[in-house]
Write a protein that binds this DNA or RNA. Sequence first.
RNA 1: GCCCUCGUAGCUCAGUAGGAUAGAGCAUCGGUUUCCUAAACCGAGUGCCACAGGUUCGAUUCCUGUCGGGGGUACCA
Length: 598
Amino acid sequence: MLQNKFKSEFAQLASKAFQATFANKYKETGDETVFSASYILENIEKPKDPTKGRFAFPVFRYGKLLGDNPPSIAATIAETINQTESKLIKITSIAGFINIETDFTVEASETIIDAISNDGKYGSSDAGNGKKILVEYSSPNIAKPFGIGHIRTTILGNSLRRIFLKIGYDTIGVNYLGDWGTQFGKMIVAYKKWAKPELDGKETVSDLLEMYVRFHDEAEENEQLETDARSEFKKLEQGDNENKALWEKFRKISIDEFDRVYKIMGIDFDWVTGEAFLNDKMESTIEAFEKANLVSQSEGATIVDLHDEQLPPVLLRKGDGATLYLTRDLSGFLYRAKEYKFDEMLYVVAVNQSVHFKQMFKALSMLEDAQSVSENDKMSTKGKHVEFGMIKFGDKMMSTRKGHIIFLEDVINEASKLAKQKIEEKTPDLENIDEVALQIGLGAIFYSQMSVRRQKDVNFKWEEVLSFEGETGPYLQYTHARLCSLMRNYTGELNADIDFALLDNREEKRIVELVADFPQAIDDAARMYEPNMIANHLIELAAAFNKFYQRKDKNGKTDKIISDNKELSKARIVLVKAVQIVINEGLYLLGIKAPKAM
RNA sequence: GCCCUCGUAGCUCAGUAGGAUAGAGCAUCGGUUUCCUAAACCGAGUGCCACAGGUUCGAUUCCUGUCGGGGGUACCA
């Protein structure tokens, strides 16, 4: 990264400056590490207020060591550095901070050339080379519709997959369908009781949902239904033909439906699997725990006691012998560990399942301990629950069981309908209106999920998801369309001979910095499993650009990007191109399409 | 009861490897277009950063406790 060039230049010079100016004290302290270039490099920070400087280095910790006050130290070091006539950086100091300004022409030219020459690859890195990461996300339940409740895992996971690919990981996006479990007992009971013969073979997911909701309604009055459901599921697990046929039917209806919705949304997976896939792997999982002497019987169930006051035991088998979700997840982990030898396994699942994952990782760790797996070969430490907050609707939690659900597709339709109205009003000549309207509608929905840190609970509000103004997906898309429009309008030459020094106003400078910092935003997002950090960065960049786009000159007239001043226009248009590349790529990482016009 | 998580402007939220006077959007009010896409831009106001301690030269950020919201706490997922 370009930043490192400036930072290490500073670190070298500052380290020397400390030696030169505080030679005696420097020796006395006996602590030379804090004066080393590498230590200084590590502690360079970015001021929250960008007008303070490109980078900053606080010297407070040197106060005691050097027996001087921080402002004075900062001033002395700054002065010394400035005497060395560095071409790359210029130093000022204030109140204990050394502020670093970079040579703007160097930063602008290198950043813009880097972005343009790499195009879509700008911001890519090899940080993850040789490493494999699995990202499990979306994972809808068969026989249930795709509700708004699944939106966060789907959008977050899709984005994380793209982010890790971007930084060089061998990335495998996994859709782990909920295609097994007691809920199928419920569905089977419901179907056998209430299926409409005339619908046979034509049932849709809504029909399935109707039965599911009816089951829960009636089960409140009639406990027998729950018992029946458990026994139907057990029959299914034992291979009962009729139940198996029903299960396959439900599964097919659902998967076809999911595929259709994923296609609309532009969500990709590398491996679509499910719980049922693990059916023949369950026995060996339970055996492994038995061999490790970790299994016991309790209240009729087969359990693994985690010996942890905070964690309930893992139930491998229920009292009736059937397996549970956790049993299947354990099997899934062991299978993936063996087949993929991953370096990380991310589970993008809501926070209300955190105990489940704690139990799972603890059980796996105990298993590996019992098997004397060496610390280096342990897989149990590589699982990570990437948890996110719940979606509420009108202060109520969503609940499929109560039929309390907003269909994702309704949200998509509503959003694109609104987008279409807006296009017809603003740019009626646009060619592919329906396509762009969908992209914008999805942009609004996707962004609404990315604009908040994942840990937070979110309230689903139509007016928020359908908002196209301010900090929204459509704002970013609009900015992108504007950038594309500028490039279409530019008819001048675009040779390599560009005078970057012409980009000298504050707005242009800010834009260059944000373009330069884009790779860092990607790394941060990956480190924190937090696409929100990319979304924030894009908003900042788009805002900086829009400000520049509409800035006025001394006479109060718009200072246009494309003007009679050919050299200036050329320098500005390459900046425009660089911004367009970053926004396009950033939106891609969030799973959002960037139309060229809207 | 215990565990996890969140608590920043009227509303929704940034501020995530502790730093310099805490920032955006929405909403409200006012302004900008003889058109490089006004889905934009400019201007105006608002904060005991839930509360109380602690660590630190420095805490919205880390630690402890309290209060409040949400989630979870063996045969659902």
